[in-house]
Design a protein around this nucleic acid. Structure first.
Length: 421
RNA sequence: GGAGAGGUGUCUGAGUGGUUUAAAGAGCACGCUUGGAAAGCGUGUGUGCGCUUAACGGUGUACCGAGGGUUCGAAUCCCUCCCUCUCCGCCA
């Protein structure tokens, strides 16, 4: 969340930022709560100081054998007033916090201003479109024919959007996960985490999924848990309410399945593996100081790109404009893979710098140069998400006979299999 | 799931209603001492919020797992919850 003091002192800038985001946020209502809160705190604390003083004198009187009943009655009255203040304060603080939780992050100064996804500039691209001398088949046809997945049976046991991989398709999932984890841990300096696949409400609030996006999450109400929509949630919140004494930056990578209800996107891009409710993903997370977060964000993005380069896949990097930026992000690059049969770019990674927005929500701090606690900056990105990666591999590397060549780096992970046929 | 024991500051650890302003020790920082170091001695050593200050800081308040309650006053008493450990049960 944003620092209430920042909002107080930069009200116009905050309002302008919300306009650029197309976010409907009542900044003035939050400021009014803040102003009332400070009023009450001041008044209540004067009373508390007085009460503490008089209470102490009661102890003294008892020791001296004097009768304290009259003074007790006075202090009791003060106590009633204090209770009234504290009651109102509790109410105001909870409203204020709720209000702050619904205000998205400030876009970074370098984030391009724009209305929607059509205003996202392309930053760079790598590779080029493969010239296939035949009509490319869609991955759903290739996959069913080669026995890589069985979407009908997946739907039977869980519903549509819950893919079931079979045989070499299942092995390909495992191979890709392992390849990416090895790359990030052995060459990019990340420490691997194997986190819980469910998180509590506090963790989900820390990274910004709750309270605003509750309808996008699966839930296990009996236990107060949510199946994670991304490893970002457990891996970021693992340091919640801590002052880190480790050297920054901290780099973590984690494989987890991800669970998303995809409410609101029903009927859009639903064929095959394009948009599913459960998918595998390797995530990267960096905890940095404010001074280095921009640089670390660039590095993390390159780490994701490296995965695609090693796999030999044509991709481009776009930057999200203010109107398309995610709720908690200040700056974000999306990486998209070219899929010939779809004739489309598919998003496989979203690399975001959250600055101190998540750290303030989750209360993740470090000690700055003065030794004072300060919020870290968090950065994360997919490195990368599997379903669309699998789509790109299948559709780009297909042959006229319906077989699929596997990228060389995967051969060892596939037990020597070089081609899906 | 059942029974029991616990949760105090960076750490160890005392504290069962009122100079506790959380003892003491360790650690850390600075200073003295020293040829240099160790030992010794001295001083300091948390976080959030409010007010104040140009700033350093000052001041008030809250914080002893979390949240409520009792009381003039709570680390201390009561209630609910969370977590850790031990034993039992169940179990991959």
């Amino acid at each position: 969340m944003l620092d209430i003091r920042f909002i107080r002192e930069n009200t116009d800038a905050v309002k302008a930022a919300m306009t650029h985001r197309n976010a409907d946020v009542d900044v003035d209502a939050v400021l009014a709560l803040d102003s009332r809160r400070r009023e009450i705190v001041s008044e209540a604390e004067v009373l508390k100081a007085e009460r503490n003083k008089v209470s102490k004198s009661i102890g003294q009187m008892i020791k001296e054998g004097k009768d304290p009943e009259e003074i007790k009655a006075q202090v009791r009255e003060m106590g009633d007033q204090i209770s009234a203040f504290d009651g109102e304060l509790r109410e105001i603080e909870s409203k204020l916090r709720e209000g702050l939780l619904y205000i998205p992050n400030m876009p970074a100064e370098t984030t391009p201003v724009g209305k929607d996804e059509n205003d996202n500039p392309v930053i760079r691209s790598w590779g080029e479109k493969k010239g296939l001398d035949f009509e490319p088949k869609a991955h759903w046809d290739l996959g069913e024919a080669l026995g890589l997945f069985d979407l009908e049976r997946g739907a039977k046991i869980a519903g549509s959007g819950f893919p079931l991989f079979t045989g070499k398709g299942a092995r390909l999932e495992r191979a890709l996960i392992q390849f990416m984890l090895d790359l990030h841990t052995e060459e990019h300096g990340y420490t691997e985490i194997a986190p819980p696949f469910m998180c509590n409400e506090t963790a989900m609030t820390g990274t910004g999924q709750l309270p605003k996006f509750a309808e996008d999450m699966y839930a296990v109400p009996l236990d107060g848990l949510y199946p994670i929509p991304t490893a970002e949630v457990p891996v970021t919140n693992m340091y919640g309410n801590e002052i880190l004494d480790k050297e920054l930056p901290i780099l973590h990578t984690a494989y987890t399945p991800c669970f998303r209800r995809e409410a609101g996107s029903a009927g859009k891009d639903t064929r095959g593996l394009l948009r599913v409710h459960q998918f595998d993903k390797v995530e990267m997370v960096r905890f940095t100081t404010p001074e280095t977060s921009e640089e670390e964000h660039e590095k993390l993005t390159l780490d994701a790109e490296r995965v695609l380069q090693k796999l030999g896949l044509h991709y481009r990097v776009i930057e999200l404009c203010t109107g398309d930026l995610g709720f908690s992000a200040a700056k974000c690059y999306d990486i998209e893979l070219w899929a010939p049969a779809q004739d489309k770019w598919l998003e496989v990674s979203s690399c975001s710098n959250f600055k101190d927005y998540q750290a303030r929500r989750a209360n993740i701090r470090y000690r700055n140069e003065d030794g004072k606690p300060a919020f870290v900056h968090t950065i994360n990105g997919s490195g990368v998400a599997l379903p669309r990666l699998v789509i790109a591999i299948m559709e780009n590397n297909q042959n006229a006979d319906g077989s699929i060549d596997l990228p060389e780096v995967l051969h060892p992970y596939m037990g020597g299999i070089t081609k899906l046929a």
